[in-house]
Design a protein around this nucleic acid. Sequence first.
DNA 1: ACATTAATACTCATTTCGAGTATATATGTG
DNA 2: CACATATATACTCGAAATGAGTATTAATGT
Lengths: 313, 313
Amino acid sequence: MNPKDNVSIGLSAAIVSVEGERPSVLVVSHEGADDALPFGPFNPVQHRTLESGLRKWVGEQTRFDLGYTEQLYTFGDKGRHLSSSGDGSARVVSVGYLALTRQGKEAPETQWRGWYHYFPWEDWRDTRPAMIDSAILPALKKFVKDAPNAESAELRRERVNVCFGEGWDEERVLERYELLYEAGLVEEFYRDAGKPVKQALGTAMQFDHRRILATAIARLRGKLKYRPVVFELMAPTFTLLELQRAVEALAGLRLHKQNFRRLVADQGLVEGTGKWAATSRGRPAELFRFRREVLRERQAPGVRLGVRRIKNA
Amino acid sequence: MNPKDNVSIGLSAAIVSVEGERPSVLVVSHEGADDALPFGPFNPVQHRTLESGLRKWVGEQTRFDLGYTEQLYTFGDKGRHLSSSGDGSARVVSVGYLALTRQGKEAPETQWRGWYHYFPWEDWRDTRPAMIDSAILPALKKFVKDAPNAESAELRRERVNVCFGEGWDEERVLERYELLYEAGLVEEFYRDAGKPVKQALGTAMQFDHRRILATAIARLRGKLKYRPVVFELMAPTFTLLELQRAVEALAGLRLHKQNFRRLVADQGLVEGTGKWAATSRGRPAELFRFRREVLRERQAPGVRLGVRRIKNA
DNA sequence: ACATTAATACTCATTTCGAGTATATATGTG
DNA sequence: CACATATATACTCGAAATGAGTATTAATGT
């Protein structure tokens, strides 16, 4: 192939953990600049696979030993990988990864940050976020009206409806972010276009990292339901309520407690340890552990969160 | 970034269609060489996005106008992108795509080929393929026995069990292909290692294209169940049996006719046209069309094929 | 003692699913 | 034309899964 076809490949990782009710992502933050995901170039000479390249880079940058990892998507859009400083020179194709861990000893330049800082409209645990009605929908209405022609307006109307209309589908995280981007509701839109920022919902990230994070959340929310991935984020033993809170934090939804318990129990996802959690108030809860055997036994075990939100939080 | 980090990006597409009961993939075949998927390099100067690059390349090579497309995975393993001629020079990272179309006018160097030529063990419509018991399981048993140590043997045993043991999970196409690759049951294994071929199940493809195709089939089989993607492969109108045969062809499984009908009808995926198919024998079937509106209405409509195989074909 | 809090158990109606049986409408054959 | 055969379509029925509770148990704080 021709040398002019050469491109640099950037590897980025959305490293996710949950502490209590807060789903977080590990970010590299330098003062003044936006947060970034840990990332680095793929070196075809050193690295045998993309994933081994990622592990090496991330290890160096964050001192983290990635556990579960999964490739998300490869982004190559022109103009979507600019840093805040605006160097538009190199064309970079970026491969995003999702990694799940528990919090540990991080490198000093990195920190865990709640992911709803970047996506405040995605957290429906307490209530439908007010900003959807106060800021998002009015702006999107305008976006529909400003469409260049009727056909485009109809397409936009449909997208708005799917993303923010009747019936919240918690998995459409990326679709929603991309819609907000195109509608100019997000800082990155202005940065990529080299224009002054007009609207900026949520906290911005460097490059296309918020898009990668959106992809990560979407994938994780989907995967939760058919693979027992939550357990990668849990301590070795946990109470059922802790497990539920973790799932809720990730899904951004509240679940029905009794049914949640029935689900994980009936599916054989967990087993009691016979020990009890130190409790403050209320009846003490039994500590459970993940039954690794289910990975072999069942076809598609997962916390099939009865997707519907609990009537009222 | 350093120039030595530069890599070529190859774009490949698994273009899928179904004609009758035969799911096919569009391949480029030159005599003497293995089949290949349509592919070409990504040109960062010309192409704004990876997908537009793909569309351009594929358009030139196959005269096909891709409809539905979806990015699958980005492969970068060293030594898995060798051609049959064995040029090991350039390091290529390949981005695989899935595209769904109907058959039309193809370029002369391309042809539709049934995908079960490449994966004969994946077609369970008539019966559990005999080669699983006659060839695959014995060889995999040996693969387990030849493990370097007990721990590795246990891991291998589990993988064999998940892939080919009790309970067929039709989505694990890639997992199965990778297992067969590692166990040396597939031509590509020997080619990539530069060794003489010992065992070769199914028809080989160039580069890592069979792996990309496996990824495509797996993704499509999964997606079928929660998104109405089959309809991309159907004529504008079709009988319910034709629709069922298409789904069965893709899934490699037989389905229960009456329940299939109930499913697609109850979900509002199709609507009758009031016209009837020209019939040879039996009562004539009504022609249906896809109700595009469901894309807006329901959360996750798809042909939730009651995964279990029909008792006996 | 008792209000409060949380864990866990049990109930119940509804929906979905798997697997049929039953009936309707063609063709082809003697 | 009667009837075997093939296919489409309708309807049934029990089992399992799901959504939304109520009931009971076991702690703490006052």
